[in-house]
């Protein structure tokens, strides 16, 4: 692992106190070229985390605050008539950036949500018949309020699936909270963060992550997990093949962050709650926050072959 990546983690840990695991998960997700969904109550540091990561990774950053009256054009951009030249000129929307923070994505209407999600999937935007590529690398970190809160349009399963991982931050620990309350305002710290790498370097790291080795023994384990979700009566649906691919990609990212050139079962177990919790639904209709618990049950139910 490059030194710069280590610095990114260190910087982020200074901003988000007491959440090293979540920071590493978020980074692993970015390294695996996946989009990240952070779900939690307002005010636990979702936006700050996204912002800190963007600053440290040296990416162009755009924040889109989703509201219920937002239209797709507000994200993608719009063509405006030029009186001087007599033709239309495209004004790119906020989505034309390397890192997008889609804040409170579930407050927008499904129409607007799907405009963003389409861009995430295709890495390009098509308006008025013209297709325009998005910058590379392209990340979306979306935050979402718990769906039981007022004024939310929950993302359907098919769109949740577009996110490689979903993580939760949770309340900070006793000590971390003390540091937070006593320290400087977070926004100030973020604005002072120094970029630790450039976009090109990040692209190279992503290529390296792809090279992380997955052995047949580990594939056995991954398949055992998938099979269990499909055979068990505990879940409404088993994990899809796409979820299986995501699991391996995220595990590669995690192994890379740990400085290993091969994936071991612990890597899979570390990312499994993030990868599986938004894709699994318990048969007994429990709250979404129990997705993590489901994933931990899953880990304990599957023996490592």
């Amino acid at each position: 692992m490059g030194n710069s990546l280590h610095n990114v983690i260190t910087q982020a840990e200074q901003v988000i106190l007491g959440k090293p695991h979540q920071i590493r998960l978020a980074l692993a997700c970015l390294l695996a070229r996946g989009h990240l969904l952070i779900e939690d109550l307002p005010g636990v540091g979702k936006t700050t985390l996204a912002h800190a990561l963007a600053r440290s990774l040296g990416l162009q950053f755009q924040r889109i605050q989703f509201t219920s009256d937002m239209l797709p054009a507000d994200i993608l951009g719009v063509s405006v008539y030029q009186r001087e030249s007599g033709d239309f000129k495209f004004h790119p929307g906020p989505i034309f950036a390397q890192m997008i923070l889609a804040d409170e994505i579930n407050r927008a209407t499904p129409k607007t949500q799907s405009a963003l999600l389409e861009a995430m999937e295709e890495q390009q935007v098509t308006t008025e018949g013209i297709t325009r590529p998005l910058p590379s690398p392209f990340f979306v970190i979306a935050t979402q309020n718990p769906t039981y809160q007022i004024g939310t349009f929950p993302l359907p399963e098919s769109q949740l699936d577009r996110f490689l991982m979903r993580i939760q931050l949770g309340y900070p620990g006793e000590q971390a909270e003390r540091g937070l309350l006593a320290g400087v305002e977070r926004r100030e710290i973020v604005s002072r963060l120094i970029p630790q790498m450039e976009a090109a370097e990040l692209l190279a790291l992503q290529q390296q992550v792809k090279q992380v080795f997955v052995s047949p023994a580990l594939l056995d384990y991954a398949q055992a997990i998938l099979r269990h979700t499909r055979e068990s009566a505990r879940y409404v649906h088993g994990l899809s093949p796409r979820a299986g691919l995501s699991l391996l990609a995220a595990a590669r990212g995690w192994a890379f962050l740990d400085g290993r050139s091969a994936v071991i079962p612990e890597d899979v177990q570390a990312v499994l709650p993030g990868v599986a919790s938004h894709r699994l639904q318990s048969v007994q209709d429990v709250q979404i926050s129990d997705g993590d618990k489901l994933a931990r049950e899953l880990i304990e139910a599957v023996a490592i072959p």
Binding site: I264, P265, E266, Q269, I299, E300, A301, V302, A303, I304
Partner: peptide, 9 residues
């Protein structure tokens, strides 16, 4: 060793 416990853990 638990059956689900990885070698490093």
């Amino acid at each position: 060793r638990e059956t689900h416990e990885g070698p490093q853990d």
